[in-house]
Design a protein around this nucleic acid. Sequence first.
DNA 1: GCTTGGCACTCTGTCAACGCGAGTGCCAGC
DNA 2: GCTGGCACTCGCGTTGACAGAGTGCCAAGC
Lengths: 338, 338
Amino acid sequence: MLSERRLEVLRAIVQDYVGTEEPVGSKALTERHKLGVSPATVRNDMAVLEDEGFIAQPHTSAGRIPTDKGYRLFVDKLAGVKPLSSPERRAIHNFLDGAVDLDDVVGRTVRLLAQLTRQVAIVQYPSLTRSTVRHVELLSLAAARLMLVLITDTGRVEQRMIDCPAPFGETSLADLRARLNSRVVGRRFADVPQLVQDLPESFESEDRGTVSTVLSTLLETLVEETEERLMIGGTSNLTRFGHDFPVMIRPVLEALEEQVVLLKLLGEAKDSGMTVRIGHENAHEGLNSTSVVAVGYGSGDEAVAKLGVVGPTRMDYPGTMGAVRAVARYVGQILAES
Amino acid sequence: MLSERRLEVLRAIVQDYVGTEEPVGSKALTERHKLGVSPATVRNDMAVLEDEGFIAQPHTSAGRIPTDKGYRLFVDKLAGVKPLSSPERRAIHNFLDGAVDLDDVVGRTVRLLAQLTRQVAIVQYPSLTRSTVRHVELLSLAAARLMLVLITDTGRVEQRMIDCPAPFGETSLADLRARLNSRVVGRRFADVPQLVQDLPESFESEDRGTVSTVLSTLLETLVEETEERLMIGGTSNLTRFGHDFPVMIRPVLEALEEQVVLLKLLGEAKDSGMTVRIGHENAHEGLNSTSVVAVGYGSGDEAVAKLGVVGPTRMDYPGTMGAVRAVARYVGQILAES
DNA sequence: GCTTGGCACTCTGTCAACGCGAGTGCCAGC
DNA sequence: GCTGGCACTCGCGTTGACAGAGTGCCAAGC
């Protein structure tokens, strides 16, 4: 086990490296931090830390930089979550309170996160699977053409066109609409399939085809839209990556363009609590030199979606984690109110 | 006026520079192109072209590179639009034919354009202003809460929540829905305001407040949503910018994050025909070293929106223009069919 | 008058040599 | 276990030399 002081040295190395972006040497460390020991002692500690794999030297006779493992230890044991300053807190409120609809909330959240953390922000739309139904509407657009509108408690709206196998009367439509709503309003999306299973049976045989079509479209919507959507912003912050950014940025930009990759990325995060994935802990190769800080957010206790940021492994973890957590909490509140 | 041969020299310079990304000298030119004259002659021509501002040297004793003005002349007079190869053409069809809804069409178009041109692609959603109304629906969500759904002929759907000043009966609702639709279905969005102007008067005084609220929400939607939406993709192609890409990329990424900037960018393009804006012709400073190739697309003769690509001024104009035009045409067809 | 070959000049990019500075590892002493 | 000292290593920036590419200009030729 590492002694208290060695941990302190690691913390100092991480802090300095994050600040200066340059390998940090023993002398500089003792000057900037009150470790109470001489550079020589620090050198010994560094040698141990290097043996254990927490730090590395880019080349002989250079200072040390933290490895992924070093950052991991730093995040787990050495760093807290830095609370936001009150101006930052106020900025969050001001920025999010003006949102008019769900798209707007998500859009503002992305921009806010990107600004606060100066990194790339990713916000997932509230998931349909875990949402509940607020309302289902059926509109008749033409004789044999219906439109299905689905409204969730998180404010998300989905619509689908339906071509009916047979004309569908206005009274049947009203009937179906009423029965559908009485069964599913307030229920979770996941429960809908079994709740509507036997609906066609209660209709006249001539309408049964249409009812089935409507229901299967509804179920399809549920499944399809479980493919989550997300929004991304702050990509220009990638230019902050550091001196080797020209090399790093390409694979990162490519990864960020693939919604699938991003969804998987957020999916890997724990459902509750904050998740930090550092460097090679990320499955996707292009993101091997980035860290991802993600957290779930939701209108109630339960997370309905996730949000987070992507940045260089050399990032200010306490500050980033603080910002991500604060934003997630406030977005949750906003969703609960609406 | 420039002689035929001088134009030929300019064309050769543009082509070589686009290919090699390096300043091109007189000797190399005569070797790669059959100009039928000696390097010395080409040097004289180059001197003239430089005096006229079509080409420039990065430093004394380097080759020449085209200026914005040079590219402009090239695009206007020297280059045609290169038709796509038939595999490319097939790729467009295969890729776009699978689209299931408007979002999907736009999403696929962006990816397709980015792939074909290897540049950043921007696709604007079909404009509401120039669209016509397919259907307006009013739903009662709660006693004093309505939902307004707007469906366009291009398949776009917008919805808004409305809090009514007073409870609104089901019959009044049906009444309003019917009258609203009879007035606006098939009409252009731009004409809607005057078409519904006198609607409140024909209602009982107790409902008038709600009707007015609904109408003003409708009009608001029209105005707000005239703020067009757009989708962007292929940003990782920015890494293809060339040797100075670390410097260039930052402002470009920043510009691309601002929807407003992009909308203005597309807005600057002509309504009909292809628009090419080269380097400093772009109003936005961050895009001064990029060129934008944009074109309108639509389901009929008329453009309902625009799409285009952003890339380095040093781009393959004929090829890019060909790809942009071909994609726009095919997207237009897809929209017309749906 | 346009074209051409020749020639001197200029500038860049590269490479090797070199010295500086930062940092390390090790060791002996406390 | 900590400390100071010391020799060693290595990257980085500077310098100077040099080759290569390209230009501008001029005088001669068609």
